[in-house]
């Protein structure tokens, strides 16, 4: 009796697994060619894509995008790796780390850049109470960044290195962006790496008496530095060259429209980023270069900074991480 039940149960479980596998593969196979699933970590420069979707520009180009908002760069890479999404959007560091650890993905478009003197969109900011006045002052202090292996960690490492310090000279804590301002004000951290809208909230907080000690991801921003990337798996890129070009063209059109129309830009910021209308008035797209094309040299600068600060062992070749697209 018991033996029979054992067999029946095992059989049941196995056939269940088999059915599930078959179902999963049929669902995957029935997906349409023009359908493009885009996993993204919500940031300023992603607005044109959401705006284009709203306006129907993707549909006009024969593309049916599905937007999947996720919680961070690594999650975007995970969405691509698990086949949940076709195109990913995040800062360039997660796809670089992903490729170095065996996820076959390449970056094909960049949406935003930073450059001297004032087009900088990441900041290191300290609370007045911490007594920090400049980069050298963070020695021995409690500093925060939003995630391991992200742009903010790179930023801290790079700016510390420029002042002759390393990450071992400070006490780092990983803290999500939304919690950083409160932590600064309550004295739980002394300084943090912030992006907008968090930075503008922090810098407008008079009780905090904030001191901005650095701006820009790398200390050397004489040349534009790519700040984010659209990426996809090697296989998908190889099979969907046409769709990639169309996505690029749609994005290009939407970017131009938003850059030329202040009202549309503010409306999109309120609608998609849930900014208050007042906050949207100060909103700008972080665009330096008109072209979205990525070259190996763009990636090489980030790789070199990562190697110099010990985040990755070298040597690495930037071109390996890029699939160039002409649109």
């Amino acid at each position: 009796m018991a033996k029979f039940i054992r067999r029946a149960v095992l059989g049941g479980v196995l056939s269940g697994v088999a059915i599930a596998t078959v179902l999963a593969s049929t669902i995957a196979a029935s997906a349409e060619d023009t359908k493009v699933r885009i996993a993204y970590f919500l940031a300023d420069s992603m607005l044109p894509a959401l705006y284009a979707q709203e306006k129907g520009y993707f549909a006009a180009a024969g593309i049916a995008p599905e937007f999947i908002a996720v919680q961070g760069g690594p999650a975007v890479v995970a969405a691509i790796a698990s086949g949940e999404a076709d195109i990913g959007y995040s800062s360039p560091v997660p796809p670089i780390n992903g490729r170095l650890n065996g996820v076959p993905i390449k970056m094909f478009l960049q949406l935003s850049q930073e450059v001297d003197p004032d087009k900088k969109y990441t900041w290191l900011v300290a609370s007045g109470a911490s007594g920090i006045k400049d980069m050298a002052g963070v020695k021995g202090k409690k500093i925060a960044f939003n995630a391991n292996g992200g742009l903010c960690e790179l930023m801290w490492c790079d700016h510390l290195a420029a002042t002759g310090l390393t990450i071992d000279d400070v006490r780092p804590v990983v803290l999500p962006f939304p919690e950083q301002e409160a932590a600064l004000e309550q004295g739980n951290i002394d300084a943090t790496c912030a992006i907008n809208p968090f930075y503008s909230s922090i810098s407008g907080n008079t009780a905090l008496a904030p001191v901005t000690i650095a701006a820009g991801t790398l200390h050397d921003l004489t040349q534009p530095l790519m700040n984010d990337a659209l990426f996809a798996s090697d296989d998908w890129l190889a099979a969907n060259g046409e769709a990639v070009v169309k996505v690029a063209q749609v994005m290009d059109k939407a970017r131009h429209e938003l850059l030329g129309n202040r009202a549309a830009l503010e409306g999109a910021a309120v609608q998609f980023m849930e900014l208050t209308p007042e906050a949207a008035k100060a909103f700008n797209l972080p665009i330096v270069k008109e072209s979205m094309a990525i070259t190996g040299a763009d990636v090489q600068r980030i790789l070199d900074a990562m190697i110099a600060t010990g985040m990755q062992p070298g040597p690495l070749n930037g071109a390996d991480f890029v699939a160039e697209v002409k649109y």
Binding site: G73, P74, V77, N97, L100, N101, N148, G149, G150
Partner: peptide, 11 residues
């Protein structure tokens, strides 16, 4: 934290 670091570095 170790787990978090491993995941964010894809290890």
């Amino acid at each position: 934290t170790y787990l978090q670091r491993s995941q964010e570095n894809f290890r």
